[in-house]
Design a protein around this nucleic acid. Structure first.
Length: 808
DNA sequence: TATAATGCCGCATGG
DNA sequence: CGGCATTATA
């Protein structure tokens, strides 16, 4: 216990209470940078010190990174020997292990099931859509995949899908056959002994709810449960936790509702908001002191997040230095934005900072390329985190597919991938015949291949020989998978199938070399895995596969120069911290994303939380930038500053005032377009998105004043420099109305703009009724300032505003 | 059957 | 623009 006293001396009072309170339900609201991981690890150490066996403690995280960090920190506290026995890992990995153990209770599955990644799922669904003769334009695989995923997150099984509200929605959207695709997909998964990521959760939920004895076994095993990032749990995870914690409810959930950013994959912020209802005897601990960021950053972030209505009240604060104000930077183009950021980083370096002190955060991965280019231009070493995941690379997927088939021969996605790669003359006609046979005899593709001798004269002898040769090759691997360790077997596979030779043939020298390096890296990973594994029973290929199936990236920092600027999405940055953060692309239709429905408060609040996450990654400085124009699919489009910028309290921000107003008088936007010269060229218009060119239109939502109508708009005037209204004098003066009233768009019969006069009462689709205060500019640039009842004064361009004169 | 050429479509966010 | 799937051609 003396050791424990030391531990407590490193904690503040709140943290210490949260650590000591081990019995019963407990909710720890951990603000950004408040020492969340510290509390979790110390709590586990404390439990161990009380005599709770390690194997009785279950700790669930969302990311491998978080799990690894926690493992390491606990090992340091209690030693590796003890820490090894903790049940700690991501939801997906822990549940996958349980499902393998209990596969006997899962109809259709055995313990060797394959875990499908998103690409596999899409491929599988594409096949099903084709086989059901559905129109692949109406039924887009990615869309269907996300519908099915959503159904699974909401625990709607394929057999119950028909008649559900989702099914009704499909019908309204002209996709009544999603139900059949879902059914067929589930059957295929079972037939091929495969599960997707959602199944790992859903099937665990089903396993427990349908097998009380199994559930009880795990309830007894997991006597103390800790859940990290509870605000990101979905319905499935929530239910499983609830079941497992029963009846003692020694459940400690840690999270921050202000950082809930995963609703797109089913996370329900209600889970954390309603914890008190689910567990009335719960204890609440709020960690509100931020040890990471300057006061300026914490205050600015608070000023933003207070705009969200749905949240647990808390006041985070910092006792660090006051710090510099947040800087806002405007550039004419996205390319220049990158250069500006690079220049700023260079001057930080000149002042003695390290590259690794800096991170560039963006909303979408698509932004990474141009930033990377800018870094290269300015000779700044950088690394894109998760640009393309290691395991997504073609050569790795190919090799992994061999492993998948060796472990699970029913895995047809993998089998199809490798059946003729590297080329072995089993072409598409042959494969087609084989799949037809499989269908007719209701067998797996692999089974048919094994029995190809019995197919009479269907195949030429040469073809039969090829097939049998492949079968023999694979069987040889299968036979040794319990004997040879993962590394030696993988090595043998690489040699025998001749994948390196195939790469040499396929690609140029350099590219082939790079791809070979990736293969070698996978081999190295396997070698490390085998060497590090202490349990001699867990060094086999399926053990390694289990590990990598749930990995999305590989750590390669150890050997390389770690002093690099990191580029990543805000989502990827969650949980990390950097001395200097550059948040780029802070524009309407990018951040907040184009995809979010401006009218949906729920979605907008999540975007705001995402911005909050971005801000709170920084320890010392935050620089936010946006570009006035941006290339998308090669087309130039206009952007307006993000509405979130105006939501930051001016007190903590530099540059808010200087932001581009685009108003008629300054001609600022016109200047840019002239200088860029790009606007006058002809672009193409696709799918309702407009680019500069034939319509000289732009899809920006306009400025703060107009953001209610921020979806891409099409304007038909050749002048574009005045397409934005000016920012309101007091950006937040009318905030309350903005978020609280979801006004129904009103039907507007636009009056002749020439009839609009000062003093007149007018109706606007978004802003409702207001009085015309001032009329300015001339002709096409004619603008009016209108005082709206609920939205304050707005400056609108007459030709776009669609105003209806209201008779008094 | 293998490779080159063309065409289409995508940009959320991730385990 | 760039990746991937389908088609054209040898």
């Amino acid at each position: 216990m003396e050791q424990m006293d030391d531990i407590f001396s490193g904690l503040n009072d709140r943290q210490s209470e949260a650590v000591r309170n081990v019995d019963g339900p407990c909710l720890v609201i951990a603000g950004a940078g408040s020492g969340k991981t510290r509390v979790l690890t110390y709590r586990i150490a404390y439990l161990l010190s009380l005599g709770v066996p390690a194997y009785n403690i279950l700790a669930l995280t969302f990311t491998n990174k978080a799990a690894a960090e926690m493992k390491e920190r606990i090992s340091r506290l209690v030693g590796e020997d003890v820490a090894r026995n903790l049940k700690m890992g991501t939801f997906h990995s822990i549940f996958a292990k349980i499902l393998r153990m209990e596969s006997a209770a899962l109809p259709g599955y055995d313990s060797n099931f394959t875990i499908l990644d998103t690409d596999d799922v899409k491929k599988q669904i594409t096949q099903i859509i084709t086989s059901l003769n559905l129109d692949k334009d109406t039924y887009k695989a990615s869309k269907i995949a996300s519908i099915i995923s959503k159904a699974k997150n909401d625990m709607i099984l394929s057999e119950n899908y028909e008649g559900s509200s989702m099914w009704q929605l499909d019908r309204m959207n002209g996709m009544p056959a999603v139900a059949s695709v879902y059914k067929e997909y589930s059957q295929t998964c079972r037939k091929t002994n495969s599960m997707d990521f959602d199944d790992l959760l859903l099937l665990t939920k089903l396993l427990f709810s349908m097998n009380p004895a199994v559930l009880e076994k795990y309830q007894r095993l997991f006597r103390y449960i800790l859940v990290d990032e509870y605000q990101d749990t979905n319905s499935c995870q929530y239910q499983i936790i609830r079941m497992l914690a029963h009846p003692d409810n020694n459940l400690c959930v840690v999270g921050d509702d202000a950082q809930s950013i995963y609703s797109f994959r089913g996370a329900k912020i209600e889970n954390i908001l309603n914890f008190s209802k689910d567990y009335p005897s719960y204890k609440l601990f709020k960690l509100e002191q931020n040890y990471r960021s300057t006061q300026m950053i914490v205050n600015a972030a608070n000023s933003l997040i207070m705009k969200n209505k749905r949240q647990i009240p808390k006041k985070t604060f910092s006792e660090q230095e006051c710090g510099e104000k947040i800087k806002i930077v405007e550039t004419p183009t996205d390319a220049e934005e990158g250069i500006r950021v690079a220049t700023m980083i260079s001057s930080l370096i000149d002042n003695g900072e390290q590259y690794s002190d800096c991170a560039i955060l963006y909303r979408t991965n698509a932004q990474s390329r141009i930033l990377e280019e800018a870094m290269h231009k300015k000779r700044i070493p950088c690394k894109i985190v998760k640009g393309m995941s290691f395991f997504q690379r073609k050569e790795i997927k190919d090799l992994v597919s061999y492993v998948r088939v060796i472990i699970n021969p029913q895995d047809e996605l993998a089998l199809m991938r490798i059946i003729n790669y590297p080329a072995r003359s089993i072409g598409s006609t042959t494969v087609e015949k084989l799949t037809t046979l499989a269908k007719n005899y209701n067998l797996g593709l692999w089974d048919v291949m094994c029995q190809v001798e019995r197919t009479g004269s269907l195949f030429p002898t040469a073809t039969k020989t090829k097939i049998l040769g492949f079968v023999a090759l694979m069987q040889e691997f299968m036979a040794s998978r319990q004997e040879a360790d993962a590394y030696s077997l993988l090595n043998r596979i690489v040699e025998k199938i001749g994948i390196r030779e195939a790469l040499q043939k396929e690609y140029t020298h350099e590219e082939a070399h790079e791809r070979e390096q990736n293969i070698l890296e996978l081999l190295n990973g396997a070698k490390e895995f085998v060497e590090d594994e202490l349990d001699p029973e867990s060094i086999y290929l399926h053990n390694y596969m289990e590990k990598i199936a749930l990995l999305t990236d590989i750590d390669e920092e150890d050997t390389e120069n770690p002093n690099k600027v990191l580029l990543m999405t805000v989502h990827a940055a969650k949980g990390l911290e950097f001395k200097h953060c550059f948040i780029v692309g802070m524009e309407e239709n990018l951040f907040p994303s184009l995809q979010v429905d401006s009218a949906s408060e729920r979605e907008m609040e999540e975007e705001r939380r995402l911005f909050y996450v971005a801000l709170t990654r920084a320890k010392q400085t935050v620089t936010i930038s946006y570009a006035l124009t941006r290339r998308k699919w090669g087309d130039l489009i206009a952007s307006a500053p993000s509405r979130f910028l105006s939501e930051l309290d001016e007190e903590y921000v530099d540059g808010l005032k200087k932001m581009s107003r685009f108003d008629a008088d300054t001609q600022s936007f016109g200047d840019y377009s002239a200088r860029q010269g790009g606007f006058s060229s002809y672009g193409t218009q696709r799918r309702g998105q407009t680019s500069f060119g034939e319509h000289n239109s732009f899809r920006s939502g306009g400025s703060f004043g107009q953001y209610g109508a921020s979806k891409p708009q099409q304007f038909s005037s050749p002048t574009r420099n005045t397409g934005f209204s000016s920012a309101p004098e007091k950006p937040f003066a009318h905030y309350g109305e903005n978020t609280q009233k979801q006004q129904q768009p009103q039907t507007i019969i636009p009056s002749n703009p020439n009839d609009i006069a000062v003093g007149q009462r007018v109706l606007h689709a978004k802003f409702g009724v207001g009085t015309v205060k001032e009329k300015m500019g001339e002709d096409a640039n004619m603008a009016v300032i209108i005082a709206f009842n609920n939205w304050g004064e707005k400056k609108l361009l007459l030709k776009f505003a669609k105003l209806q004169i209201v008779e008094n």
